[in-house]
Design a protein around this nucleic acid. Structure first.
Lengths: 226, 226
DNA sequence: CGCGGTCTTGAGGTATCTCAATTGGAGTGG
DNA sequence: CCACTCCAATTGAGATACCTCAAGACCGCG
């Protein structure tokens, strides 16, 4: 019932519901990342934008006191590495082995790139903004169980696969990541999992394999704040 | 010592530290908003992007149960109204009387706009992403006092003006807005103000006029999580 | 098979929320 | 000009959810 490391993600991940940009023509180059390998660090000059092909990335920022915060996860199809003033504003690591497409973007600041590519970049950035806004709704004034429910529904949309009438997926990240993403402690995340299990909203086959039993229940949880 | 409505913002607001886009040529049209007037609603077709000239806007989203969340404030120079799939994803209202420049953006999705304008839009979107990431750092696992300290420092950067060696500014929004922005209750925000006052970090001339006495103290507060 | 790390579970402390009462000021009408 | 109402902000007391610290369970790995 216990596994100390998240499951290895294969190269096959289900398509996701959201519309997203197709950068294949613009980015023939790819790069493979081992589990835990970093793609870039905070402060690095941003020479490229990356599109996740397979695997999952996490964006991390540390505070002065060393506290870690997970700003977001990048699933296949997502863009990572949006620069600010030509620099990356966060660390980016592979949660599981991943492959990313590389978009050379020296001109991303200079305006020297192809208009159609720029259009795709803008659309990707707008998508990112919308996605972050959704996350804001999750972070403020919600209980731990509600936050976890929201997070799991998001996971289901992005990496869920059907399993006998239900949706299931392998959580690629450890509890610590989820906690730092939701603004909780790992202990509280664990307790929230237990609570959702007791409510029969989900099952945990391993600790990293989630089977959603009652999606409606999770949705009503994530929506109602009391 | 008590004022029931936020102060009226004049047309003169100090310039801000952040670099931002200059849309003046592209957007000769402007629109004036009375206090509380809405600029657009969630779900509206996004025909324009807006640049704040004067005043302050707030982006708001409501949950199914009616809970309100303030996603962000738009200060002079900021862009508001980034669309997702051609629609606005949040309500936008004027916190105080405001004037915005209108950027017709029918082609924002179609890619038919001028490359240089598109470049500015992309830069504005990247700025927005970075700004939201900063807010994430504030929302998770920080005490109420730390959140408020972070927020006030942000205000000081955007609308602060020097006053006898200190920085001061008029808080344009009521406590409820600050609470919904920081994921707290108005009562807790009020208590956090009292605590910061007791620490001699700031003074409240009216309840809406903040004078920062000890910026270093606020900064150490907002950075250290314990 | 034992070590190391992650996850879970428990007990107690603490910060925030909730509910309620009070204060203070602005706007209104006499 | 003053009394009144209305509303936001403040303050207080109690309940509650989460954090902290600690121990135990479980598994992968050497």
């Amino acid at each position: 019932m216990y596994v100390s490391t998240p499951p290895k993600f294969g190269q096959t991940i289900a398509p996701h519901s959201r519309p997203r940009q197709d950068f294949r023509r613009a980015a023939p180059q790819t790069r493979s990342l081992a589990e835990g390998a970093h793609l870039f660090h905070e402060g690095d000059a941003a020479r490229s934008l990356y599109i996740v092909n397979t695997g999952i990335l996490r964006l991390i920022r540390y505070q002065e006191n060393g506290q870690r915060r997970v700003l977001g996860f990048c699933y296949p199809g997502d863009a990572a590495g949006f620069p600010l003033d030509g620099r990356h504003a966060a660390d980016c690591e592979a949660v599981v082995p991943a492959q990313v497409a590389i978009l050379k973007s020296n001109g991303l600041q200079a305006g020297s790139i192809h208009p159609r590519l720029q259009q795709k970049l803008l659309d990707a950035a707008l998508q990112e903004i919308s996605c972050m806004q959704d996350h804001f709704m999750t972070l403020g004034r919600k209980s731990a169980t509600q936050k976890l429910a929201s997070f799991l529904l998001l996971c289901a949309d992005r990496i869920g696969r059907p399993l006998g009438g239900c949706t299931h997926f392998d959580l690629p990240m450890p509890r610590r990541d989820i906690a730092d993403y939701l603004g909780l402690t790992p202990e509280t995340v664990s307790r929230a999992f237990t609570q959702l299990r007791n409510m029969k909203a989900l099952m945990l086959d391993h600790i990293y394999t989630v089977v959603l039993l009652d999606r409606a229940l999770l949705e009503s949880l994530s929506e109602d704040a009391d």
